[in-house]
Design a protein around this nucleic acid. Structure first.
Lengths: 137, 137
DNA sequence: GTGGCTGCAAAATGTTTGCACGGAT
DNA sequence: ATCCGTGCAAACATTTTGCAGCCAC
């Protein structure tokens, strides 16, 4: 169960750190392939999983899209703009209270949930409004 | 854009209604295939999508698993037991407040999010505790 | 030296799609 | 008569895996 320090694992971790904005496995693979074309996709996936396992990376499950990875493993949440694709972090301390409310209600002991909010970011909303007004002229 | 009334679409809707507990596309296909082996998987998927589109069904995106479908389209949430697989509904009226809090914080206009809580249900917890005590004897 | 890690390719999984035909409107 | 929906199979996207050799420990 002890993990070895391979060059490939280091490359994967470096790539996730370098690629801001929560890269997908393929983003990581592409980035590594630039300088190390012999590293295989399977190895990238295996190392991503291993790093998630040992809590060095966080896996963000994306419905209807490839999963993403985050170097920031502290408890936080994500927002994705459907328009420009921006993907950003959000703190939600009030979520803890919600969870205990759910546990009380259901009798469940919750140990994980995946949560990505999708919508339109402030910038895109502004542009949209400007566009709407323009089209009225 | 007008949808036609085909036998296949009726079969899909009937199957989702008959299969309680939020069936997957394959559950629906299997059920229909029992009596109508000529209906194809593609048709089941296309009809499920069409029914979601017109708000007759709700699609529940499941991370790391096949998506599920729900005849109950009113706003509610889901809990899945990792132990026995039970999948049940939960009402969370307080989620609305959380959403407006997020919109205020982020400037996003949120239009969807998928949320399935995973944990251990009350029954399984009880059994687990009994088992733990037994093993101490 | 040994056993985990790698590269490669194949497979698994879940879902969509191109096409020619058939059926609902 | 239109043209949307169907069955079929192939394609797709993402991820996992079997295997033989390699390398970190």
């Amino acid at each position: 169960m002890k993990q070895r320090n391979t060059i490939q694992k280091r490359l994967v971790l470096e790539a996730v750190a370098a690629l801001l904005n929560h890269p997908t496995a393929d983003d990581v693979y592409q980035r590594i392939a630039m300088n190390h074309p012999n590293v295989s996709r399977g190895t990238v996936y295996r190392n991503l999983n291993a790093l998630v396992q040992c809590n060095t990376l966080l896996k963000i499950s994306m419905p209807d899209a490839a999963d993403r990875y985050d170097i920031d493993t502290h408890l936080h949440y994500h927002l994705k703009c459907k328009n420009c694709g921006e993907f950003l972090d959000i703190e939600l301390p009030e979520m803890a209270e919600m969870l205990s409310k759910i546990e009380d209600k259901s009798g469940f002991l919750i140990d994980r949930f995946d949560l990505v909010f999708k919508g339109i970011c402030a910038d895109c909303r502004e542009k949209q409004i400007v566009q709407d007004n323009t089209s009225k002229l």
